[in-house]
Amino acid sequence: MALKSAMAVTGAILVLFLIAHMYGNLLVFGGREAFDDYSHHLRELGEPMLPHGGFLWIMRVVLLASVLVHAYAAVALWRRAARARPAGQRYAVRRSAQSPARRYATQTMRWGGIIIVLFVVYHLLHLTTNHIAPGGASNSPYERVVNGFSIWWVVLSYTVAVLVIGYHLWHGIWSALATLGANRASRERALRTISTAIATIITVGFLIPPFSVLFGLVS
């Protein structure tokens, strides 16, 4: 029971991060300065109360903890579900009584989550530590972004990841709201719409910078 609430809360934290991060990313349109300032600013936030990079570290800890708790809860639920309908008791035919698209979103939560985590690792190696540096390493985050996204397959890999995230959130946001008790018959539609909207905004918001770079709108 507590699992579910933890999942919803950590999921929500991750969503908030994503929204902030998306806003940050959109600053690429402000040009190199704005973007680098932003990145720099992140590290100064909270100074002098916090040491340089303090806020960023707090944020990282919270994020990491959230992902761990979230993943732990997800795995626990997954295992429960597997026990609740063990192998050998699966249906020969399975069909959904709901719309197939929504059903697909719900059915990909677990593998989707794993893909997301793998992506984040890849993404950190790429844009934060710059260990992977297709298109050339740089000290400027702005340049890393521009360098990376000039290459089609980098864009493709990000696109795939972001779409997976969109799917994850489409169901995830709705589910978190329901788990936190927000759903009532009169609101169900509204909540579904909200989750669709947020998921779409996040997906599109993340996709804009890479494609802008690829198509040379930002260079």
Binding site: L77, R80, H171
Partner: peptide, 11 residues
């Protein structure tokens, strides 16, 4: 009773 947990799927 070993029912699974609900993840708000709605089926």
């Amino acid at each position: 009773e070993e029912f699974g947990g609900c993840t708000n799927i709605g089926e």
